[in-house]
Computed example of a mutant assay.
Amino acid sequence: MQSLYISLNSIEKVKQFVNLINLYEGDFDLSSGRYIIDAKSIMGIFSLDLSKPLRLDIYNNPEEDEIVSKLQVFLSE
């Protein structure tokens, strides 16, 4: 499992993120505080507090390095 912190502070970023993450098989979770949702769910993402960085957990995906490189634009500073 790998974890990274991402920022999805606009509707456009959320749509881009969901479209990208849905290209890959496997499990992806986003968490904010005590809430954890499926990162492939656009409705779930909008239920989180998007004003703060979110933790993305990537589980047992053989394409993990490729996914992380494509997610660079979403990484939280």
Rank of each mutant, 00 (worst) to 15 (best):
N22Q: 15
N22G: 04
N22W: 04
Y24P: 00
E25L: 02
E25F: 06
E25W: 03
E25Q: 09
E25H: 14
E25Y: 04
E25S: 11
D27R: 10
F28D: 01
F28R: 02
D29V: 05
D29F: 11
D29T: 12
D29C: 05
D29H: 08
L30D: 10
L30G: 01
L30V: 04
S32G: 08
S32C: 10
S32I: 05
S32L: 04
S32D: 07
S32Q: 13
S32P: 00
S32F: 07
G33S: 05
G33Q: 13
G33K: 12
R34L: 02
R34I: 05
R34K: 15
R34C: 07
Y35V: 11
Y35D: 08
Y35F: 07
Y35R: 14
Y35L: 13
Y35A: 10
I36L: 12
I36T: 15
I37Y: 12
D38V: 08
D38R: 11
D38K: 05
A39N: 09
K40A: 06
K40V: 08
K40I: 03
K40W: 07
S41I: 04
S41P: 08
M43G: 01
M43I: 06
M43C: 03
M43V: 11
M43L: 12
M43N: 14
G44H: 06
G44L: 10
G44A: 05
I45E: 00
I45H: 07
I45R: 02
I45S: 03
F46M: 08
F46Q: 02
F46H: 09
F46G: 04
F46P: 01
F46R: 05
F46C: 00
F46T: 05
S47D: 04
S47F: 07
S47V: 06
S47H: 06
L48N: 03
L48V: 12
D49E: 14
D49S: 07
D49H: 03
L50A: 02
S51E: 15
S51G: 04
S51Y: 15
S51Q: 13
S51V: 13
K52H: 03
P53T: 15
L54H: 12
L54A: 07
L54Y: 06
L54K: 11
L54R: 09
R55Q: 13
R55G: 00
